[in-house]
């Protein structure tokens, strides 16, 4: 690889790390300005001022905020996410399995959604403004417009209740085979796919249509290439950067936006975990999950940026 690319990529990564640090400050500050604290949450309404003060002392809550921040950050960097206040369990250990579950679900949703969305986008361009294009756009838009809980319950009603092909509740546990796991997550994965499909499909269509105006597309047509070959070989490679961007945004959504779907299907992932602990006002858990979500978002966007840089022949092959 040539040097300008290395430099650009290094810049992006450095920027991403800076951004992540800034986000960690925000997450920390955000949880501080919420009314009430953990001590109050643990002891409840009837707590005496003395017992509150004692517990705060014990938990280190009466130290200045910036000291607590660096303390927390230092822990995070060494893999110690702290202890959940509500249950007293180590957060890192409880998160590990759940993060893995969430990524598993996101991965399979992505494996279906991304190729499907791009292929549908290509087909929509091929038959642009015809009925095929309108049908694809219409169905994709409709599936996005429905709220995900509605799609989720619809899927449950049809595939779990009426036909009993898939379980309505996606329980997964250690010792399940991959096939069993896939069957368990089929419905939430389908719901997620339907949610993210339209965005990627529409973006693929728009990005390719944009380059279809180019002179080189005309050149390809005048070589006698078939309409689909022109789109695939000549238009698509030049539309890849915006497509990667929107794909990565949707991937990030698959990881961090699954809260509702996980709750519907009672899937033991990060979303469930987060919702549970928000209601318990368990600040360390909320911070840890928030930071992990931010890290996923930022890294996927960095990957999108890097992929767009690498996809550009001008940067890959300088003069």
């Amino acid at each position: 690889m040539s040097s300008p690319i290395v430099k650009l990529v290094a810049q992006r990564i450095a920027l991403g790390i800076l951004l992540l640090l800034a986000v960690s400050v925000l997450i920390f500050a955000g949880t501080q300005i919420l009314p009430g604290d953990v001590a109050q949450a643990i002891l409840g309404q009837s707590a005496t001022p003395e017992s509150l003060a004692n517990l705060r002392e014990q938990l280190g809550l009466n130290q200045p905020a910036y000291i607590r921040y660096f303390h927390w950050l230092g822990g995070v960097l060494t893999g110690d996410l702290g202890t959940a206040m509500s249950s007293g369990q180590d957060i890192a250990t409880s998160i590990k399995d759940r993060l893995w579950n969430t990524l598993f679900l996101a991965f399979w949703a992505a494996v279906v959604a991304i190729p499907l969305a791009i292929t549908l986008g290509l087909i929509a361009v091929r038959y642009r403004n015809g009925w095929v294009d309108k049908l694809i756009s219409g169905v994709a838009l409709a599936s996005t417009s429905f709220p995900e809980f509605f799609i989720g319950y619809l899927l449950v009603f049809y595939f779990a209740v009426q036909h009993q092909w898939f379980p309505a509740i996606s329980t997964v546990y250690d010792g399940m085979s991959i096939g069993e796991r896939l069957q368990a997550i089929a419905l939430p994965a389908a719901a997620l796919t339907l949610v993210v499909l339209a965005h990627m499909m529409r973006m693929t269509r728009a990005a390719i249509l944009n380059v279809m105006q180019s002179a080189y597309v005309e050149t390809a047509e005048l070589k006698g290439l078939s309409a689909f070959a022109v789109i695939r070989k000549h238009a698509f490679p030049n539309a890849i950067a915006p497509i990667i961007n929107v794909v990565m945004l949707n991937l990030a959504y698959l990881v961090v936006g699954v809260v509702v779907v996980e709750v519907i299907f009672v899937y033991p992932g990060m979303g469930q975990y987060l919702v549970d602990h928000v209601t318990k006002r368990d600040v360390p858990v909320v911070q840890a999950v928030g930071l992990i979500f931010a890290a996923v978002y930022i890294s996927l966007n960095i990957i999108a940026d890097i992929a767009a840089i690498v996809a550009n022949p001008r940067l890959r092959h300088p003069k």
Partner: peptide, 29 residues
Amino acid sequence: FRKLRGREVCYVAQSAAAAFNPAHRLMDQ
């Protein structure tokens, strides 16, 4: 049309800079 384009009749455009696909090597095109 597709059979004759690029075989019996070929086209040279006004701006070659725009008429070549930036994503592919010249020889491939």
